[in-house]
Lab assay of single mutants.
Amino acid sequence: MSIQHFRVALIPFFAAFCLPVFAHPETLVKVKDAEDQLGARVGYIELDLNSGKILESFRPEERFPMMSTFKVLLCGAVLSRVDAGQEQLGRRIHYSQNDLVEYSPVTEKHLTDGMTVRELCSAAITMSDNTAANLLLTTIGGPKELTAFLHNMGDHVTRLDRWEPELNEAIPNDERDTTMPAAMATTLRKLLTGELLTLASRQQLIDWMEADKVAGPLLRSALPAGWFIADKSGAGERGSRGIIAALGPDGKPSRIVVIYTTGSQATMDERNRQIAEIGASLIKHW
């Protein structure tokens, strides 16, 4: 067993022997301040990774656009098919120029040779490549099948209805392509620590998230040296922004954090800054 596999296998073990965790309302004060600064709703939840206990939450059962955070769930569904012998990570998928959609920095470079399922998941999570996500959605049967996968996990809230990039439209009061912070946090925890996926697939999923290259201005910008984070960000229309993450000190994750916002007129930089400040408060009061 590799060191990384050992780390993920012992996530519940280490967490069980940690000192009790206590909620700190100071972080919620910052979440509410972010709402004021952005002029928009902000949803927040913080779960203990081992027990699933909610440590703090704000608007945990209000719907927010998922945006690209759905790509972690998508690759979880792909990995479940791999575990069941219905898919192979090494299978190569070929596609054409007509398949390319807006923001496809990886797939646009491989029109000639195609990409493997493993490479597509890596591109979808680490670079948020939209064509990679659409190609992977095709392998599982489309958005409705991802929703069905989530329902089978016990998540009857999260739903995907459309493809990239239309799913980022974020129309107010439109339930399409949305989740709730509580539902997303619980589902992410199941994917990373539950028995739904094999140990190898859980490790692969967290490795992809740990290698995320496009979430630097968010929670990662607030992390002290030595902290662990595996995350996936999302951005959408109407001032929408979000991030889902597993993080913790001492090089291992111990909490799940989900943050979503929508309806702001603020710039992307300002949305990023507010999420980073929430992260800084979380870490300060850990």
Results as ranks from 00 to 15, higher is better:
residue 198 T to L: 10
residue 121 C to Q: 01
residue 63 R to I: 13
residue 158 T to E: 01
residue 51 S to E: 12
residue 128 S to F: 00
residue 149 F to P: 01
residue 50 N to K: 10
residue 249 P to T: 11
residue 94 H to Y: 08
residue 266 A to I: 06
residue 135 L to A: 14
residue 248 G to F: 00
residue 43 G to C: 03
residue 186 T to W: 11
residue 119 E to N: 11
residue 56 E to K: 07
residue 78 V to E: 03
residue 66 M to Q: 06
residue 201 S to Y: 05
residue 75 C to S: 13
residue 116 T to L: 12
residue 90 G to M: 13
residue 158 T to A: 06
residue 45 I to P: 01
residue 242 G to Q: 00
residue 81 R to V: 08
residue 104 S to M: 03
residue 71 K to N: 01
residue 163 W to K: 06
residue 216 G to W: 07
residue 163 W to G: 08
residue 117 V to W: 02
residue 47 L to M: 10
residue 136 L to Q: 00
residue 60 P to F: 15
residue 243 I to K: 00
residue 176 R to M: 08
residue 160 L to S: 07
residue 199 L to D: 09
residue 94 H to K: 07
residue 123 A to W: 03
residue 83 D to M: 04
residue 31 V to M: 09
residue 31 V to F: 02
residue 190 K to E: 15
residue 249 P to M: 12
residue 99 D to N: 10
residue 141 G to M: 13
residue 161 D to W: 02
residue 84 A to E: 10
residue 51 S to G: 07
residue 163 W to L: 08
residue 245 A to M: 05
residue 252 K to W: 07
residue 193 T to F: 10
residue 177 D to R: 01
residue 106 V to C: 15
residue 42 V to R: 01
residue 35 E to T: 04
residue 135 L to H: 04
residue 222 A to H: 07
residue 174 D to V: 04
residue 40 A to N: 06
residue 160 L to A: 08
residue 90 G to S: 11
residue 122 S to K: 10
residue 198 T to D: 08
residue 235 A to Q: 05
residue 131 T to A: 06
residue 76 G to P: 00
residue 166 E to C: 11
residue 165 P to K: 07
residue 71 K to F: 02
residue 285 H to F: 07
residue 99 D to W: 14
residue 115 M to W: 02
residue 144 K to Y: 06
residue 53 K to D: 12
residue 280 A to T: 13
residue 245 A to E: 00
residue 77 A to V: 08
residue 276 A to M: 13
residue 138 T to D: 11
residue 256 I to E: 00
residue 182 A to F: 13
residue 34 A to E: 03
residue 269 D to Q: 14
residue 132 A to W: 00
residue 26 E to V: 14
residue 254 S to E: 09
residue 43 G to N: 00
residue 41 R to E: 15
residue 105 P to C: 03
residue 54 I to H: 15
residue 212 D to F: 02
residue 237 E to Y: 09
residue 179 T to S: 05
residue 189 R to H: 10
residue 27 T to R: 04
residue 236 G to E: 03
residue 95 Y to G: 03
residue 245 A to K: 01
residue 32 K to I: 14
residue 182 A to C: 08
residue 153 M to A: 07
residue 51 S to C: 05
residue 151 H to F: 06
residue 130 N to K: 02
residue 120 L to R: 02
residue 212 D to G: 13
residue 204 Q to P: 03
residue 274 Q to L: 12
residue 69 T to V: 04
residue 39 G to A: 09
residue 271 R to D: 15
residue 65 P to L: 03
residue 60 P to S: 13
residue 210 E to N: 12
residue 248 G to T: 01
residue 60 P to Q: 14
residue 150 L to T: 14
residue 195 E to F: 04
residue 169 E to K: 10
residue 198 T to Q: 09
residue 206 I to C: 12
residue 141 G to P: 04
residue 122 S to D: 15
residue 158 T to F: 07
residue 186 T to L: 14
residue 72 V to I: 09
residue 77 A to C: 07
residue 62 E to A: 05
residue 107 T to Q: 02
residue 252 K to D: 15
